[in-house]
């Protein structure tokens, strides 16, 4: 089910949990008008970001799987339905770079194809609780960040997508060996529903931290937030 419509359907429904219900009455419904419970939950979520950053071990790899364990058919998921997927033209597509990056020249798809490639069969866990196993191939993000002269001491890597989606990850996770700019899915170039032409694939975080159809990537010290993160999903969302 479409997440946005699901959420809207739930808005306004009364809660029947006595005092707890009163406390939760307004939680996260209006991100720009937080009530007391919202402020407390935000503070706890920030605390959980710090705990997860401390728990993150750059040397711990996400589990990898055999080809016969791959989930078929693959599962599509986005904040909109399949028929609303934006189709990007690969020939004119470019990846804009911004922020604390030495070489801001945009990258074309052919240049990313010519870069070193990394293949992985890993698990994608959705924040909703389901998981799929897929095969992704592409350019290791740590290689790309060094190649463009990114400030690796900066706190965030921020990405923007063709469909208006956006997200950001911490630098330690960005430099993790399994974090890649995926070009291939299941042994073939990505298709539009799965993020053509380039998707951020990061098996150490939840699915919504794997944005599709990237159009811009930057490095910054100012928290860039994210489409779901700004509505209340935990920002770090590490696995």
């Amino acid at each position: 089910m479409n997440k946005l419509s699901e959420r809207r359907a739930l808005l306004g429904r009364a809660l029947a949990f006595g005092a707890l219900g009163a406390l939760t009455g307004c939680d996260y419904d209006h991100p720009h008008h937080p009530d007391l419970a919202d402020r407390a939950l935000r503070a706890m979520s920030s605390w959980n970001d710090r705990v997860q950053a401390a728990l993150f071990d750059p040397a711990t790899l996400a589990p990898t799987y055999r080809p016969d364990q791959i989930t078929r058919p693959p599962r599509f998921n986005a904040y909109y339905d399949l028929d609303q997927v934006r189709v990007v033209d690969g020939a004119s597509w470019k990846l804009d770079l911004f922020g604390a990056v030495a070489e801001k020249r945009p990258w074309r798809l052919t240049e990313l194809r010519a870069a070193p490639q990394e293949n992985q069969i890993t698990r994608l866990i959705c924040v909703e609780g389901w998981r799929v196993i897929g095969q992704w191939g592409g350019v290791p993000l740590h290689w790309f960040l060094r190649r463009i002269g990114a400030d690796l001491r900066a706190r965030y890597v921020s990405v923007r997508c063709a469909d208006g989606y956006y997200s950001s990850i911490d630098m330690a996770s960005a430099l993790h060996p399994q974090t890649i700019l995926a070009l291939d899915f299941l042994g073939r170039p990505l298709t539009p529903p799965f993020g053509f032409p380039v998707r951020l694939r990061i098996p150490t975080k939840l699915g919504f931290k794997n944005p599709k159809s990237l159009v811009a990537l930057g490095v910054t010290n100012v928290d860039p937030g994210g489409y779901w993160e700004d509505q209340g999903y935990n920002w770090f969302s590490g696995s």
Binding site: L15, G21, D27, L41, M44, N48, W228
Partner: peptide
């Protein structure tokens, strides 16, 4: 949903990961 806490998934997770402490 009349007996759940948090009106959507994001809110429910926020409650869950706060109350766990």
């Amino acid at each position: 949903t009349s007996i759940t806490i948090g009106q959507w998934l994001g809110a429910a997770i926020a409650w869950h990961l706060a109350a766990m402490w």
